[in-house]
Amino acid sequence: MSPTHYLVLSAILFTIGGIGVLVRRNAIVVFMCVELMLNATNLAFVSFARMHGNLDGQIIAFFVMVVAAAEVVVGLAILMTIFRTRRSSSVDDANLLKY
């Protein structure tokens, strides 16, 4: 299989994740869509690693996973804190920048 297939799949998954970020209102679901985007990029990196014949792409994917894990931890902690005070997890609640 040429890398092109994997890359196109990665692009599709990335876009789906992107649309999900834009469309969903529940903060946790938005977070999950971000995870989907990260996973899609991981797929692209790994397929490039196979293409180039060295493991650098896999290393990067590894680090992406590490960072994503850390990010999820902190993000969810923030979400919890907000939920405690506001009792709502809708993304649309943060609209103080409204004209």
């Binding site: 977070f31 991981n42 590894f62 894990a69 931890v73 969810l76 979400l79």
Partner: peptide
């Protein structure tokens, strides 16, 4: 794609830990 280590790490860390973390928070929220 000849990345077995990454495959297992994906299952263990990502799906097993991160996603479960998501589910826990969902329960709490």
């Amino acid at each position: 794609l000849e990345a077995p280590f990454l495959a297992f790490v994906q299952v263990i860390v990502y799906t097993g830990a991160v996603l479960m973390l998501f589910l826990f928070v969902l329960m709490l929220v």
